[in-house]
C-alpha cells in the first residue's frame, strides 16, 4: 500500500510523536507514505472564516498534488480529514466554483480534477478489510488486557455526509482496530463528542469542561487510556489535563495515545520509540498492563 501523506501542521509541531509513530506504524505494516512536503495547512476551518475560497483553493491545491502523484491521500488528523473533505465537496458540487478555484491554481501549475483519488484518515485505511488483515498479520505484541477508549475527533464524523464512517453517530471503526490489536474497546457516550480545543483561546473554561467531561466519561467507563485520531484532541486531553483536573477536582488522570502509537505498540515498538515519553500525562502505567 502506498499513499500520499498529508501530515498536517500539528504532527510536525506540538505532537511530533504523532508523526514519529505514524512512520513507525507504516514501517511495521509495510505501508509506504510519501510525505506531501509542498501541501499547505488545511486551514482547520479557521482560514475559511477569513475567506472561504482561499481555504478551498489551498486545499484543492493539496488534493491536486496527490492527484498528480496518482496516490490516495492519507491524513493523520481528524481536523485535516474533515476540512479536506469539505473542500472536495464544495468544489465537486459546483462546476462554476471548481473552475474559479482552478483558475486560482493555474499559475502554480496545479489543477484539481476531483474524483481521482480518495481522501482517508489513517484510521479509515486501517479499518478496511485489507487494513485489518494487514494488522492481524503483523501484530507481534497483542495489547491483551488494555482497555482503550476511542476519541474520534468530531471533524471525521460530522457532517455525516462527508464522514467515511458508516454510522457516524455510532462509529465502530477505531474499536474494530483495537480488537485486532488485542485491546478491549470501551464504549462511552463522549467518544463522538467535541474535545473543546477549537475554542481554547476564546472560552477556556468551556473548552476544558468539554474535555473534562469526556475524560471522566472514559475513566468511569473503565478505560485505561484514551486513543485519539486527532492531534488537536490530544493537545486538549493530554497537554491541558492538569488544568482540567484542577477545574474538576476529581483527581483523575488518564494517558492519551495517538492511534498510530497504539498500533505501533502492538507491532512491537517500545513506548520510547513512539515518543510516548513526550506526553504530559505519563503513559508508564500502561507498561504494567502490557507486560
Amino acid at each position: 500500500m502506498k499513499f500520499a501523506l498529508f501530515t498536517g501542521c500539528v504532527a510536525k509541531g506540538a505532537t511530533r510523536e504523532l508523526m514519529l509513530s505514524t512512520m513507525k506504524s507504516a514501517e511495521g505494516l509495510g505501508i509506504e507514505f510519501i510525505e506531501m512536503k509542498s501541501a499547505a495547512c488545511c486551514g482547520a476551518g479557521v482560514v475559511s472564516e477569513k475567506n472561504p475560497i482561499l481555504a478551498d483553493a489551498l486545499n484543492a491545491r493539496s488534493i491536486a498534488i496527490a492527484e498528480e502523484q496518482n496516490l490516495d491521500l492519507v491524513t493523520i488528523c481528524s481536523t485535516c480529514q474533515g476540512i479536506l473533505k469539505k473542500t472536495e465537496s464544495h468544489v465537486d458540487s459546483d462546476p462554476a466554483y471548481k473552475e474559479k478555484v482552478n483558475n486560482v491554481l493555474e499559475e502554480g501549475g496545479h489543477q484539481y480534477a476531483g474524483g481521482k483519488i480518495k481522501i482517508q484518515h489513517f484510521a479509515n485505511v486501517l479499518g478496511t478489510e485489507e487494513g485489518l488483515k494487514l494488522l492481524r498479520d503483523k501484530v507481534k505484541r497483542p495489547l491483551t488486557g488494555l482497555k482503550t477508549a476511542a476519541f474520534y475527533g468530531c471533524y471525521v464524523l460530522r457532517p455525516s455526509e462527508l464522514s467515511l464512517y458508516e454510522d457516524p453517530d455510532n462509529p465502530t471503526g477505531m474499536e474494530e482496530i483495537f480488537e485486532i490489536l488485542g485491546a478491549t474497546p470501551v464504549y462511552y457516550d463522549s467518544r463522538i463528542k467535541c474535545c473543546g480545543f477549537p475554542i481554547i483561546m476564546m472560552n477556556k473554561d468551556a473548552s476544558h469542561d468539554m474535555a473534562g467531561n469526556a475524560l471522566i466519561d472514559a475513566i468511569d467507563s473503565g478505560a485505561d487510556c484514551v486513543v485519539t485520531g486527532c492531534p488537536l484532541c490530544h493537545l486538549s486531553l493530554d497537554a491541558y489535563q492538569p488544568e482540567i483536573d484542577r477545574m474538576n477536582k476529581k483527581g483523575y488522570s488518564i494517558p492519551i495515545l495517538h492511534l498510530p502509537q497504539l498500533v505501533a505498540l502492538a507491532l512491537g515498538y517500545s513506548p520510547q520509540e513512539l515518543g510516548m515519553d513526550k506526553h504530559i500525562i505519563s503513559t508508564t502505567r500502561l507498561d504494567t498492563i502490557l507486560t
Binding site: 471533524y155 460530522r158 476564546m202 472560552n203 468551556a206 473548552s207
Partner: peptide, 15 residues
C-alpha cells in the same frame, strides 16, 4: 463572549 467565536465547529447542530 457567548457569541459566534464560542462555537467549536463540531457540526453537531448541522447533524
Amino acid at each position: 463572549p457567548g457569541g459566534i467565536w464560542d462555537c467549536t465547529h463540531c457540526a453537531e447542530c448541522v447533524e
